[in-house]
Amino acid sequence: MGKQSEILQNLIDSFAKLPGIGKKSARRISYYLINSEMKVSEKLADAVIEAKKKLGLCMECHNLTEHKICDICGDDKRDGSSILVVENFSDLYMFEKLNIHKGLYHVIGGLISPLDGIVPSSLNLASLFLRVREKKVRELIIGLNHSVEGDTTALYISEKLKDSGINITRLATGIPIGGEIEFTDEVTLKQAFMERRIF
């Protein structure tokens, strides 16, 4: 077998560095691009560069935006007294699709995990605390994962804001819709029982 072109290898390696893409997929994408028309590659390259150039973070909530302030923060019909704390853009998008939260968001950009080098100061937490103090925030909804890292971050936030007098809530845990009790893990089932509601 002959030696593979260095240019091709470079392309494959670049794709393989992306999250969720392994060596095999990187190779497939590379071959696809090379075999397809030039304009496919040009479009892709332009889209990446344009996004990198024009997209930035909202000064208020750290959501992705083309402006200084994102569309959500800039919308005066939204309730500024309620803030939903999320880990990243994709979680924000999930909630936004539901059209259930009428307030604002705060993207903290990760979860506290010293093992991965993520400590409170690596996250957008100082700006959150500032927002809560300076704006008239009445409710903070913690929309973080129910994992050790999510719990730690949630506890950290609530500890920091315990004297602020605002209402802090967290997403409930329990049996998923359509889920069967028999196949629900015991910790979740217990939690669902403890958090049961008047029916």
Partner: peptide, 10 residues
């Protein structure tokens, strides 16, 4: 120090 307190409660 604050993180230690949180981990300790868990």
């Amino acid at each position: 120090s604050e993180l230690i307190a949180i981990y300790n409660s868990k």
